[in-house]
Nucleic acid binder design. Structure first.
Lengths: 215, 215
DNA sequence: TTGACATTCAAACAAACGTTTTATACAAAC
DNA sequence: GTTTGTATAAAACGTTTGTTTGAATGTCAA
């Protein structure tokens, strides 16, 4: 019998092209025919390999998105371990570095954040998956790392809000490239991405750098 | 002849229901039939009043989204004028206040940021409209207000990155409510929104509040 | 070679899609 | 009272949609 054969090319191509298209245009804007054409296979292949369109979408998250997110978090952890002490500065810079430069290609980064943004807004099945399997554990770990260095009286909620704010920035500078480019006039070159990493680090540590007295 | 009659009820209802549905589910996930059912009118009404579906979408931006954005900016300006001096703290707090509490209902805020997010990612016709008519002028004005209080040697680009970062936060805390609620455990009550305004203000001014020395 | 299984393919399916058409109702204008 | 213009209505238009079907192809075991 035709064993699973380890790597089914058609199935893999379908996952790749589906992810690219879903990321670029959104679930409903992409037709099954569009995907199978891009993957150079028959229309029925989607239903044969994944049952239906929605299952293909979910499988994109299970087989592509989540593993990539884990690689991302791993990359963050590694570049943090390289530091001697996990100072807040080191943590933030490692975070920004991982998300903006990190272990993936530009195309992958685009897909990743585009898909994340699409799911962050509404309560879908894929969102539940991402929230439970990726976001919550990552934020928890980040909180544990940052906790000791935080000022007194901040509390758990304050710490979480800080983390969410940093996350908001790395997310924004990744997915809103168009707007950022339009406002700053800069393309996402290697140089500009380094600039962004520095900016996010600075802003996360000192804000506007004019820190007034807050009541 | 039947004059325009000033307020065409069907047309207005179509714009309202279309905006709500487009915001919640995205352009392609919403059918014309769904919209006309919600607006309690005939299927052909969309094509009669707007020509086609895409024109209706664009008109949602022209007749609803952009005017609301202007009201938002006006609200920001007013609450800033109330202050004596435009200190950075006052600017940031007014900004967060306008975007998180501001002049609109919760439902409106939801629609507004959901639609914005959907357009920020890809280069569509509506994005061009939003970028040119709303984003760029607003950021320019904000830059002018903030400029005098900024530290030396920051430069125009640095200032813009700061503004973009604050914008990233107000955007995120508005559109990613689901994720924020899931992480913090807090619903978007009046109290929590005030908390968020304070958090955004603090974070924008002092970052994590542990500002180390940056090289 | 035969039989069993996995995969691909062209063709067809019913349902849903955006849009158009035709008819009707109701004003105000002449 | 007829005409003119606006708005709503029901029905149909031709496409495109996701999915299913049944035959063809290739592969390995017996």
């Amino acid at each position: 019998m035709g064993k699973p054969d380890n790597h089914d090319l058609t199935k893999e191509r379908l996952l790749d092209e589906a992810e690219a298209l879903f990321a670029r245009k959104g679930y409903d804007a992409v037709s099954v025919r569009e995907i199978t054409n891009a993957a150079r296979c028959n229309l029925a292949a989607v239903n044969y390999h994944f049952g239906n369109k929605k299952n293909l979408y979910m499988e994109v998250f299970r087989a592509r998105w989540i593993p990539r997110a884990r690689r991302l978090h791993e990359s963050f952890r590694k570049s943090l371990d390289a530091e001697e002490a996990a100072s807040p500065e080191a943590v933030v810079r490692a975070l920004a570095q991982a998300f903006l430069v990190g272990p993936m290609s530009d195309e992958e980064r685009f897909r990743h954040h585009q898909l994340m943004i699409r799911e962050l807004g509404q309560s879908t099945e894929a969102f539940e998956l991402v929230a439970d399997e990726v976001m919550r554990p990552f934020f928890k770990k980040l909180a544990g790392t940052l906790q000791p260095a935080m000022p007194q009286g901040l509390g758990k909620e304050g710490l979480m809000l800080n983390i969410l704010s940093m996350f908001a920035m790395v997310l924004y500078f990744n997915f809103a490239r168009l707007a950022v480019t339009r406002i700053t006039g800069r393309e996402y070159t290697k140089a500009f991405k380094s600039r962004l990493v520095e900016h996010i680090t600075e802003f996360s540590l000192t804000g506007l750098g004019v820190g007034g007295d807050l009541h």
